[in-house]
């Protein structure tokens, strides 16, 4: 861990300005991802701005009938909220399928969106990795890639976004609200929030330097039945090989986003439109341009089967 300085910001604008001011500064929320990466010197911030005093820990109704989730709401609190459980079951299900009780107590909504990839080569500083060290190469390509992306990858990076909550956020069409260093705010649709690796795999998302997430909003409830199918080798405490967040309506229509397959939660709206034709039709469209490796080609039939399970569950509900 590189030595670093530390401060606690009082207001969102102040926090954003503090990070923008100092090169190599980062926000610190629950710390469950950032501190681990700092110990391994994968992240080497020289200054940390702790956001825990920013009072962004409330869940409030929005004027258009949705919910505004403060950036510091913990995963535990969000999953347990009665409004979320009633109207956004997919979100609760996705969150509780992730990490462990202890981690969820500490993990925040913003930190969770920004968790970094679990590519094993990213985690080993001896290995070339364009995400960790731009221009150094990608050890995962041609290496052990069972966990990695099957679609949307590039010749420079085949990492996945590993989280669960964001997959549910994607199916709900959430919006990420931010404040920039100059005090201006913006709202980023979740679809545009995470990036594909392209030739800049070191960038996970489209935030600017010093841009602070203040909240995530979800639009008014979709109705239907809510599903989160997380497929993994062991029963708990593992990242998804493939996950499916889905909202299925009584008439068999619906929408689905996939986790564990790409550098961002993967949803193709044109594929959603095929939901009534069954899982195979949806995934044929959603994974049309897939370029899996030998190790992870199984994820495509797995995505189909996992979606089929949710559709069947929706029918029997």
């Amino acid at each position: 861990m590189k030595p670093f300085t530390y401060e606690r910001a009082k207001t969102p604008a102040e926090a954003a300005a503090a990070v923008a001011r100092q090169p190599g500064a980062k926000f610190l929320a629950g710390g469950t991802n950032l501190l681990d990466l700092m110990k391994l010197e994968i992240e080497t911030p020289r200054h940390l701005v702790d956001v825990q005093d920013l009072k962004l820990d409330r869940i409030e109704p929005t004027t258009d009938g949705g919910l505004r989730i403060g950036a510091l709401v913990t995963n535990t609190a969000l999953a347990a909220d009665t409004r979320v459980r009633r109207d956004y079951g997919v979100l609760t299900r996705a969150i509780v399928a992730g990490a462990s009780g202890q981690l969820r107590n500490k993990a925040t909504t913003a930190g969770n969106l920004l968790q970094r990839t679990r590519c094993p080569y990213f985690y080993d500083p001896n290995m070339p990795c364009n995400k960790r060290k731009p221009g150094s190469g990608c050890a995962a390509i041609g290496g052990y890639s069972r966990q990695l992306a099957v679609i949307g990858s590039s010749d420079q990076c085949i990492a996945t976004y590993p989280g669960d909550m964001a997959v549910a956020m994607r199916v709900l069409d959430a919006t990420v609200e931010t404040v920039k260093a100059d005090g201006t705010t913006r709202a980023i649709p979740i679809a545009d929030f995470h990036r594909l690796p392209g030739d800049k795999p070191h960038l996970d998302n489209n935030l600017e330097a010093g841009e602070l997430i203040t909240a995530v909003t979800v639009p008014r409830p979709l109705g239907g039945t809510h599903h989160y199918e997380k497929v993994r080798d062991r029963a708990s405490y593992a990242f998804a090989l493939v996950s499916v967040a889905a909202v299925i309506q009584k008439d068999g229509s619906g929408r689905a986003a996939f986790g564990g397959v790409a550098h961002k939660p993967w949803r193709v709206e044109a594929a959603d439109a095929l939901m009534t034709q069954g899982a195979a039709a949806v995934t044929a469209r959603a994974f049309a341009n897939a370029r899996p490796t030998e190790d992870n080609a199984f994820k495509i039939p797995l995505a189909t089967r996992a979606l089929a399970a949710t559709i069947a569950e929706g029918k029997s509900a």
Binding site: R118, P120, Y121, Y123, D124, G143, Y144, D233, R234, A235, S236, Y237, A238, F239
Partner: peptide
């Protein structure tokens, strides 16, 4: 490659 307890899974 999977040289930590996140990558090397043991039963929970």
């Amino acid at each position: 490659v999977n040289h930590d307890l996140a990558g090397y899974e043991v039963p929970v």
